[in-house]
Amino acid sequence: MKKITSHEPEEELMSVNEAFEDARASEARWRVFDTEHGLKRVFIELPLPLYNRLERIARQQHRSVPILIERVIEDLAVTFGNVT
């Protein structure tokens, strides 16, 4: 297990109600963001070896994996869009 010490363990954290309210308000904020920007978020599962390869490529390009995948999908859409 990693040795990362806790931050301000003596400080009081939020209640359960506050945690659920955080989640509700955050989800609402990001829904508005998605609507305003015309976005639809997708969740994909990748086999770990493939994910690790993508992560290495993304790191070389100073990008995160989601941004790399979005670029590839955009290129695919252009390619297939031209074919059909």
Binding site: E21, A23, S26
Partner: peptide, 18 residues
Amino acid sequence: VPLIGFAGILIRACQREL
């Protein structure tokens, strides 16, 4: 300033079925 705590992040991820 809108905020969310770590527990809230986990709850949101769970509610999104991640």
